[in-house]
């Protein structure tokens, strides 16, 4: 499998990354290099082996359902670009 320039620009759009056409070519080559490596991995016979979702074979630890976080709104909002009435303000979004 290898990616075209169109694939690269679509991935960039989905990831909200702006790339120039020169960068797109370089990125395509790099991504295709990664895919070639993946193809190498896929050549290994994995019949009868359950897929892993994580590199470490341990299971999730759970925490008790208790409220442990204090209200730190003022500290968090001190570094926000813009706030009002306790809200974070962002450029207008309308669906």
């Amino acid at each position: 499998m290898s990616l075209s320039l169109d694939d690269v620009s679509r991935i960039a759009r989905l990831a909200r990354i702006e790339i120039s056409s020169a960068e797109a070519e370089r990125t395509r080559d790099q991504l295709n290099g990664i895919l070639a490596f993946v193809a190498q991995l896929q050549a290994v016979n994995t019949d009868g082996i359950a897929p892993m979702a994580h590199a470490v074979d341990v299971v999730q630890r759970l925490r008790p359902d208790t409220v442990t976080e204090p209200d730190r709104r003022d500290a968090f909002q001190a570094i926000a670009p813009e706030t009002e009435a306790g809200l974070y303000l962002v450029p207008k979004v309308i669906e």
Binding site: Y88, L89, V90
Partner: peptide
Amino acid sequence: KSLHEDFHGKTGIDL
């Protein structure tokens, strides 16, 4: 939640 009421033409975010 996104609040689309008028905040000087911006959207307010409550997390």
